[in-house]
């Protein structure tokens, strides 16, 4: 299944990602498909986003397999804490993953709240993908 992203929808998605930066304190946010293709991004990129998208999708997929092995459907919270940067993974739809980078001083609770709200906003993405909008 291929995805064609038109300019207006990329802008719309970027605005939603901007909410995570402005209101949630994130430093960088991006959407990738489960195959590791970068869909769109917002914020100041600390690294090569193409590679980050690939590794994030792979990490999410591997973790999902671990969940299945131990009898879970999937883990609801997936995030890594670092010294200078944290990373948070959220499944938006069966095909789309939201990755957020944020500094350790940013509240994880607040960020998760904002991610939930943005997730709902992007929730209709799948409908839009299938041309239902």
């Amino acid at each position: 299944m291929n995805i064609i992203l038109k300019k207006n929808k990329v802008n719309e998605l970027e605005n939603l990602l901007d909410k995570l930066i402005e209101e949630g304190g994130a430093s960088y946010a991006f959407l990738t498909d489960m195959a590791g293709n970068l869909i769109c991004k917002n914020g100041e990129s600390p690294v090569d986003t193409t590679t980050l998208a690939v590794l994030a999708a792979a990490n999410f997929a591997a973790t999902k397999e671990i969940a299945r092995l131990i009898g879970e459907d999937e883990f609801s919270l997936l995030f890594h804490r670092g010294q200078k940067e944290n990373i948070h993974f959220t499944k938006i739809s069966p095909d789309i993953l939201l990755i957020v980078l944020f500094k350790p001083y940013v509240s994880l609770g607040l960020l998760r709240l904002k991610v939930d709200s943005v997730k709902k906003d992007i929730g209709c993405l799948e409908n839009k993908i299938y041309g239902c909008d």
Partner: peptide, 15 residues
């Protein structure tokens, strides 16, 4: 799954 981003004018394919 190829992704075509018409804003960034990029086509990504996986081999």
């Amino acid at each position: 799954m190829a992704v075509i981003n018409l804003k960034e004018k990029i086509i990504q394919v996986k081999i």
